[in-house]
Design a protein around this nucleic acid. Structure first.
Lengths: 359, 359
DNA sequence: ATTCACTACTAAATCGCTTTTCTAGCGATT
DNA sequence: AATCGCTAGAAAAGCGATTTAGTAGTGAAT
């Protein structure tokens, strides 16, 4: 990296006023007290008795001098910050980013801002960031794909949290349905030997997802061979992990005609590993991913996957949180909001080669 | 989406103290004045005359009662928020997310938090968000891939901003080199008919990138045919745009043996379009992307691309910003910090089919 | 002539912290 | 005895808003 400074003429200088007007100054210019001005500007019912003419004068002056209440002064007084904290494993993961996008949709629209902090699976940070958020007086917290056990003094909403904690609302996918729909799809295509890649331990969906897969398999009377169950290892979010997990599967030498990956990223790595083993996707092995990240549709071949409405989940999380911030109490025991998955069939799945489907 | 509330036993309740201690209360318990306590806690030099014993008592009490200075009170007084604002086109884009990740690396480590806002290319939001940030008294701003012309009352650092604005530092890629390295690679492989996909108008790199490509082509004595120049249209960040741009290229019926896409995302769409036209990648058409997003290495075939060190750029932006916040003045005319690209050769490029390389 | 009820505002107390400016007490100097 | 210089800490003035509890002034009712 090199550093150099260039000096050219400035392109455009729309210097934004360096000295904002305070309430007191505004009041002075109006020959009124700060109290009156504040009352009027905040449309307090107490200001009902003030004649419209005066109100107009105040409002006009506020506009003229571009009066903006000082945020800290206001927050200090109101003990509210109109800010919420969002904690994610990693900003640059497609999963977190999609959810954040939904969170933002709703939040900014409602006049809230948000802090982001990513813990990168470090337990100490998972502990510390909420504390720091609280120190900054956030009005609430959203935890995305992060194990959560704390009951805080402000409302908390998780996305994909599965613990029942007081004061915490979880936004979760209907995993039962997700597992059913994916397995049924493979089953109907004739697949009987299905391999699986489980998520890392720290991923908050890992356990539920696996439990629901086992259940769905039982219902289909489909045995799961332990040799065909692999797991993502390591805390990066690279396709590499899926690649490695698949290599392990392949090394077991137990044949399989389909693979259900923990997510799209790992499915991408899996496909690479399969190819290297001279297996064609989907002709020899069908692959199903999870999440439906943006690039899933543009894989080659396009990836069949279980879509999670991530952005919607983020939006719902934000809505739920704001609702709870505005109407405190009632956060008795934590609740759950469920969203539905959708199987998106593209081209990494096809009829099983062994013809079992016709039996 | 269905909603249902479940009630189970709470898992674990580590309720965090609902009533933080104020400085005044702490001082009271110590039978000292708030002033003294504040001075000691902040290790002010004025507290030098206070005996160590008293200091220890104060520090011990602070720890015991978990005293945390109220953030707003402190910021109100100090006129500093230890918060910076980050404005991006879209959180869920790989580009922005990678940069943000780098920004965060440095920021949190230095005790700063950051707000995120995505403008989604809407001019009104590009105008409004900085204003809102300022209203919240951010100490500085980072604008990622966003056209920037404003000179603000706080330091601003852009990532991929190319305007010279007073008080604004730009972190940019060495585009000259990027264009050279990519074109030279294709040239050496014998490609003479190269197609291009330009970025959208609103993308802040579009112009520079194209200018440098033209220059590099001239230096190689390589003509650029207007019929082989396409452009991304629309403000989504889906591969679809690259797909469409490539269709247009194909429709011109002018043959080409290589394609240089504006970014990896559009390269993905381009490859899809090429395949549909029965063209093999790379045998019939070589493709070069830009950025080297995470999934680039896991495309099939793995994508040859020009890597931008996005995370590093984010980190550098944060460092530069904090430096300027701490040492005000000197932001005379805006400066520029350049980072180097790197050509990552994977498998979407190969020798041109027409054998020109051997001439 | 009082009292009452309004109207149209204002004073002043907070919110919690920082920081500059005192001051009380005490031993040591002139 | 008066002054000086320390030490150890306290008082008080903000920072910029919000909000409760007033208070003049006016006209009407008793």
């Amino acid at each position: 990296m090199t550093t150099k400074k260039r000096a050219k003429g400035a392109l455009q200088t729309v210097r934004m006023g360096p000295k904002p007007v305070s309430l007191k100054q505004l009041a002075e210019r109006l020959s009124l007290s700060p109290a009156t001005v504040s009352l009027v500007i905040n449309r307090s019912p107490v200001a009902d008795s003030i004649p419209q003419e005066t109100k107009d004068r105040i409002l006009a002056a506020a506009r003229k001098y571009k009066y903006r209440p000082n945020f800290f002064a206001r927050s200090l007084r109101a003990q509210r910050s109109f800010t919420i904290g969002v904690i994610v494993p990693e900003v640059s993961e497609g999963y977190s980013a999609s959810v954040m996008s939904g969170v933002e949709d709703h939040l900014l629209q409602e006049g809230y801002f948000y802090f982001v902090a990513s813990h990168r699976h470090r337990a100490d940070l998972i502990d510390e960031y909420p504390r720091l958020f609280l120190e900054r007086s956030v009005d609430g917290l959203i935890a995305v794909d992060t194990p959560w056990t704390l009951s805080l003094s402000v409302p908390v909403v998780t996305v994909s949290g599965h613990n029942q904690v007081k004061g915490v609302t979880n936004i979760v996918l209907d995993h039962v349905r997700a597992a059913e729909v994916a397995l049924k799809h493979l089953f109907q295509l004739g697949h009987r030997q299905i391999a699986f890649i489980k998520g890392q331990e720290f991923s908050s969906d890992t356990q539920v997802r696996w439990a629901t897969i086992e259940k769905a398999a039982r219902q289909l009377n489909l045995p799961i061979s332990p040799a065909l169950v692999s797991q993502l290892k390591g805390d990066s979010s690279s396709p590499q992990l899926g690649y490695e997990a698949t290599r392990k599967l392949l090394a077991s030498r137990k044949p399989f005609t389909a693979l259900f990956a923990f997510n799209d990223i790992s499915a991408m790595g899996a496909i690479r590993a399969l190819r290297e083993a001279k297996l064609r996707v989907p002709e020899d092995v069908s692959v199903v991913g999870f999440d439906d990240i943006q690039s899933a549709a543009y894989q080659n071949p396009p990836l069949t996957t279980v879509r999670q409405p991530l952005r919607e989940m983020g939006r719902t999380a934000a809505e739920t949180l704001l609702r709870r911030i505005l109407r405190p109490g009632g956060e008795s025991l934590g609740g759950e909001t469920m969203v539905e998955p959708k199987l998106v069939i593209r081209q990494t799945t096809c009829q099983a080669a062994n013809g079992l489907s016709s039996k």
